[in-house]
Amino acid sequence: MTVTSVSPTRSVLADCVRSATTAPSLHNSQPWLFRIRGSAVEVYADPGRRLQVLDTDGREQLISVGAAVFTLRLALRRAGYASDAALFPRPDDPDLVAVVTATHSAMVTSGVEALAAAIPRRHTSRWPFARTSVPADVLDHLRDAARWESTVLAEAGPAARDAILHLARSADHLLHARPGYRDEIARWTGGGLRHDGVPGWAVGPGDGLERVPIRNFAELSPLPRPSEKFEPNPTILVLATAGDRRCDWVRAGQALQRVLLAATWKGLAATPISQPVEVPAMRRLLIDPRAGLTVQMVLRIGYGTQAGRTPRRPLSDVLLPLPHASRGRAVM
C-alpha cells in the first residue's frame, strides 16, 4: 500500500492524463483534450473529432470523454490521490466536460491496484469469443462496477438477447443508408503512421453465422472481408442511466470504462454493439419504458484471445497549454 503526503506534481498529472488517453472511443476517434491547472485537470470534448453522421447529438462523444474522465480518476487514485470530478462546471464553456481535482492523499488498495493494472490491457476485440458462459459471480462484479458509477448494468436473457441482436442488425443496415456513412468510416479506418482510428489489423472478421453485427471497417477495402463463426449465444449486457442528459452521457462513459476495466481484470474481452443505440427509434426499443431507464450502450463480453491495443495520440497532441494570463502562476 502507498500513501502520499504532497500535492501531485505536473509530471504525475501528465502521466495520469496519458493513462486517460487509453480510454475507449467511437471509431477510436479519441475526442478529448486536457489542460493541467494546479492540482486539477480540465477535460474537454474536442468538437473537431465528433462523428457527425453516427453521433449527431454528441452523445457518444460524451460517453467517450466520460470514459477518459474515469480513467483519469483511477490513475490519480493509483498515484495515491483521492479526487473530485465536477461535470460541466462552466455553462459558458460547453466543451469543458469535467474538472478532476486531486483533493488529498489516499491509500492505494488492492482493488485499485488491480483495476488500474487493467488500464493498459483493455482493448476492443472484434473477434469470436469462446463458447463458454461467463460465471454469475463475474457478472455480479460487473454489475457492481456499474452501480459504483450510479448506472445499471443488466444481462439480456435469451429472448432479449435475440431481440437486441435483431435490432442491431437492422440498425446496421439503416446506418449504412445514411448519407456520409461510408465517408466517415473511411476517415477513421486505415493504417500507416496515424495515431487514431481503427487500423486494419483491428478490424476483425464478419460473423459467418450472420448473428453478431460486427461493424465492418473493411468495407471499402478491395480485399474480401474474412468470415468466422462467432459464438451463437453471446453474452449481451445493457448499460442504462436514469436520465438522458449530457451529464448522464458522461456518467455512462465513466461506468462503461469501469465495467470494461473490471471485465479485463477478470480475463474477459468485450465488444461494443453500438448500432442499435445510434438509431433513436431502435434505442427506445432496447428497454421496457416502465423501467424508467435509458439505454446508453450495449456490450458483448466473453473469453477471447488478446487482439492488441489500437494506437493513441501522443500527449503533445491532447495536452493544452495554460492560457496566457495563467502562465505566470505556479503549476505544481
Rank of each mutant, 00 (worst) to 15 (best):
E278G: 00
V295C: 00
R300S: 05
P280Q: 04
L299N: 06
V298M: 10
R283F: 05
Q275T: 05
M297R: 11
T271G: 05
W265G: 08
Q275L: 04
T294S: 11
T305R: 14
V295S: 00
Q296T: 03
L285M: 09
I273K: 04
A307R: 12
L286P: 02
G302I: 08
P311A: 07
S274L: 11
Q275F: 01
G304W: 10
I273Y: 06
G302L: 04
R290H: 15
R283V: 01
V277A: 00
D288S: 03
A307Y: 14
P289Y: 13
G267T: 06
R312L: 09
G292Y: 12
L286W: 13
G267E: 12
G308Q: 05
T310H: 11
T294L: 04
G267C: 04
R312Q: 08
L286V: 00
P272H: 02
A262S: 05
A281T: 06
W265E: 15
V279Y: 06
P280H: 07
Q306K: 12
L285E: 13
A291V: 09
A270I: 12
Q296D: 09
D288R: 02
R283I: 07
G308V: 10
A281I: 12
P289A: 06
Y303P: 00
W265V: 13
I273W: 06
V295D: 02
P280G: 00
P276G: 05
Q306E: 15
T264F: 06
P272N: 02
G302V: 01
V279E: 07
R283P: 03
L293W: 10
P289M: 11
P289R: 10
M297V: 10
P272G: 00
K266D: 15
R284C: 10
T264Q: 04
M297Q: 14
A307I: 12
P311D: 07
T305G: 11
T264R: 02
Q296G: 05
M282T: 04
Y303D: 06
P314A: 06
Q296E: 12
S274E: 11
I287L: 14
E278N: 02
G304S: 03
I301C: 02
L268T: 02
L285T: 01
Q296M: 10
R312D: 11
A281C: 01
E278T: 01
D288M: 03
V298D: 06
P289I: 07
T264K: 03
R284E: 13
R300P: 01
G267W: 14
Q296R: 02
V277S: 02
R309L: 14
T310M: 14
L285P: 04
